[in-house]
Every structure is written in C-alpha cells, then in structure tokens.
C-alpha cells in the first residue's frame, strides 16, 4: 500500500473544523431541547395519570427500541410528506436527535426520581411539609443532582450518535470526513483523524463523568 501521508489533513483542516462546529452546534441544541423534554417526560412516566403514563411510556420505549438511523430517516423522508412542507436538513436532524435525547434522558430522570428512598418522604411527612414543598425543595433537587452523571453520559452518546446525520446529507464532521476521504483516496489518514477528533472530545468527558459521579455520591451519601 501507499505510505501514509498525514499532510493531506492540513489542506483540509478548515473544512474539518467547519464540520466539527456543525456537529457541536447540533449536539448542543439537541442537548438543551432533549433534556427539557426528558425532564417532563420523566415526570410524566412517574405520574398518577394513566394516559400521561401510557403516552410517555410508548414514546420512550419506541425511541429506545429502534435504531437512531431509522428515526432519522423517518423524520427526514416521511415527516415532510406528512406535514406537506419542506424541512431543512438541519431542522430534521434537530428534531430527530432531540426526540432521541428526550427519550434517553427521561429514563435518566425517572431512575434518579426512583432512587430517592422512602425515608426521605417519611421525613417530609414528619416535618409536615406540603406536597409542593416536598417536590420542589426535597425530591427534585436531589433527583437532578443524582441525574447529572448519567445525563452527561447521555450527552456523550448524543455527540457520538450525531455522526449519523451524515447519512442524510448533513455536512457534519463525519460527512466532511468521508467526503475528503473519498476525494483524496486517503481514507486511513482522514478517517483516523476524524475518529481521533471525536475521541479527543468524548474521552475527557467520560473521565469527567466518573469524577463527578464520585463527588455527587459522596455528597449524597447519608
């Protein structure tokens, strides 16, 4: 095989950077929207209302039970037909990844709500706290704190899954990477570089998850 020539990367560094920025922008938007949806869906899944529980449960199970790629394709190809309007690549990608993020973060919120022990509720009763105060001052703050490490993991997953939008033609890091790789016929150098870029961002975040998890667990250990 031809000797490796990483200098090819220098010629395309601007394009790769643009792709990375698109990836990051997309990821950040979907993190914010997805967490917001996930929070309310998580609450809905623990609610006493059966309809609310049923609908939210179906949404979560469906998005967790199908490949993200098909969700993306569905929204990209089918939603415009149903709505009868055009959707930009970016909008489709945001909708798809937000719904995916909403589904996985709702599970995180639900699990952290359930991890709050019976004794905490007993203490609220013994102190005569009204239901609203119990929820806003005792249950939710602890649930959110407990959720943080897993939420961060969810963000990393989303960052990685975002590479899929290249399959529907959005010019993210993966798309630009494969394009350059095809045009220069240097897949080893280019694809390895793309993989490393993803790695350099995701890896420190996974370390942070472990660190934060320990901090929070120590703090909440009572």
């Amino acid at each position: 095989m031809a000797p490796l020539d990483f200098s090819v990367l220098l010629r395309f560094q601007d394009a790769l950077l643009t792709g990375l920025l698109t990836t990051l922008e997309l990821t950040l938007i979907c993190i914010v929207l997805g967490c917001a949806i996930g929070f309310f869906v998580g609450l809905a899944r623990t609610s006493d209302n059966r309809i609310l529980r049923g609908v939210s449960g179906f949404y979560v199970e469906f998005f967790r039970g199908t490949p993200v790629l098909i969700q993306l394709f569905w929204i990209f190809f089918c939603l415009p037909l149903l709505l009868g309007t055009e959707l930009s690549n970016f909008t489709s990608a945001v909708i798809a990844l937000t719904l995916y993020m909403g589904a996985i973060t709702s599970e995180t919120f639900r699990a952290s709500l359930r991890s709050i022990g019976r004794e905490q509720y007993d203490a609220c009763v013994a102190l005569g706290l009204p239901r609203w105060t119990q929820t806003t001052s005792v249950v939710l703050p602890q649930a959110v704190l407990r959720a943080i490490p897993t939420l961060l993991s969810n963000c990393i997953s989303l960052f990685k899954e975002s590479a899929l939008v290249s399959a529907v033609g959005m010019t993210d890091l993966m798309f630009i990477g494969s394009n350059i790789s095809n045009n220069t016929a240097r897949p080893v150098e280019v694809l390895t570089a793309v993989a490393l870029i993803y790695f350099v961002i995701a890896f420190p975040l996974t370390r942070a998850v472990t660190f934060i998890e320990q901090r929070i667990l120590t703090k909440l250990a009572v």
């Binding site: 990393i156 990685k160 899954e161 975002s162 590479a163 899929l164 290249s166 399959a167 993966m174 990477g177 494969s178 897949p187 694809l191 390895t192 793309v194 993989a195 993803y198 790695f199 995701a202 890896f203 996974t206």
Partner: peptide, 11 residues
Amino acid sequence: RCTPALVQIVW
C-alpha cells in the same frame, strides 16, 4: 467507547 460506531464501521 469514545468514538461514533458509524466512524468505526466506515473506518
């Protein structure tokens, strides 16, 4: 664990 599965497969 820290790179997208798609990148791994294409690679």
